[in-house]
Simulated assay, not measured.
Amino acid sequence: MRQALLALLFCLTPLHAAELTLELPGGTRTWDTVALLAHPKAQNVTIADDVSYKKTMAYRAVPLAALLEGVTPDQHLQAVALDGFAAELGAAPLLATQGARAWLAIEDPDEPWPPLARGKPSAGPFYLVWTNPRAGNIGPEQWPFQVARIRYLPAVAERFPALLPAADAGAEVQAGFAQFQKNCLACHRLNGAGDAQFGPDLNIPHNPTEYLAGDFLPRYIRDPQSLRRWPEGKMPGFSKDVLSDAELGQLIGYLRHMAGRKVAP
């Protein structure tokens, strides 16, 4: 569904007219493709093991920190894609100038990027990519493509109290809540809470821990197609490099905990 919608949006939006809106504490600014390609800090970057293309890619890109005027490391941002994918991003990694470093890749209309798959659009016109992502434990949900807007928002816990574990929940459940924010919230809502527009809710009407017994839920998260072979399925698998066994256990513990905290949307 996501790729089909992206293809339609790609056809309806001329690449040369692409715009990126930044809604930051100091105000709102819109950049277009031409201005970003001409940015004084734009440079060529090589991304090894690109998350979306699954190979090494080269881009013309601007350090994202150069665009985030007035943003401080303690703040929170959200990158919204054309299809409603909403990546929740702490500002500190985006502002870093060493280790894992965030870049806004800009698709040049004269040198378009390849499609993500046969019959699909590219990752452009704007794509958040990372150099040395392992240094910052950057996960695949922190690589949003087809980005249309980056905005400053209060933290997830403040915006969506329906996502919060009980006050007396243990450290493992709290850690699972952090994993949920990092790996799931960009696509899914829970208790109707969240900004993503296309993933199913993970608690209403039923939590996956209620209908995937035994080891089926961990297996599904690791490799969705191993349980439900569906050519149009878009959920990626989360390998141990992305989500360790301990972190996966924390995430499932949070989901199991929230099954007892259903809130009608």
Rank of each mutant, 00 (worst) to 15 (best):
M1G: 06
A4K: 15
L8P: 01
L12D: 11
T13F: 06
L15M: 15
H16A: 15
E19M: 15
T21F: 03
G26W: 03
V34L: 12
A35M: 10
P40K: 00
Q43M: 08
Q43F: 00
N44D: 05
V45K: 00
T46G: 03
I47Y: 02
M57R: 12
Y59A: 05
R60M: 09
L68K: 10
D74L: 00
V80T: 14
A81M: 09
L82D: 02
G84Q: 02
G84S: 04
F85E: 01
A86M: 03
A91V: 10
P93H: 06
A96W: 01
T97H: 00
Q98Y: 00
G99T: 04
G99Q: 04
G99R: 04
A102W: 04
W103S: 00
L104T: 03
D110W: 08
P112N: 15
P115W: 09
G119V: 12
G124L: 08
T131K: 11
T131N: 07
P133W: 07
P140N: 13
I150L: 11
I150M: 04
L153T: 15
L153N: 08
P154I: 07
V156K: 04
A157C: 00
R159E: 05
F160W: 14
L164S: 11
P165V: 01
P165N: 00
A175K: 10
F177Q: 05
K182W: 01
N183A: 06
C184W: 05
C187V: 08
R189K: 13
R189W: 01
N191C: 03
G194Y: 09
Q197R: 14
L202R: 11
N203T: 13
I204D: 06
N207L: 02
N207A: 11
Y211A: 11
L212I: 04
G214C: 14
L217F: 14
P218T: 03
R222F: 12
S226I: 04
S226W: 06
R228N: 05
R229Q: 13
W230P: 00
P231M: 12
M235D: 02
M235C: 03
G237F: 02
S239G: 14
S244C: 07
S244Y: 05
S244M: 08
Y254R: 06
R256T: 13
M258R: 09
M258H: 10
A259K: 04
P265L: 05
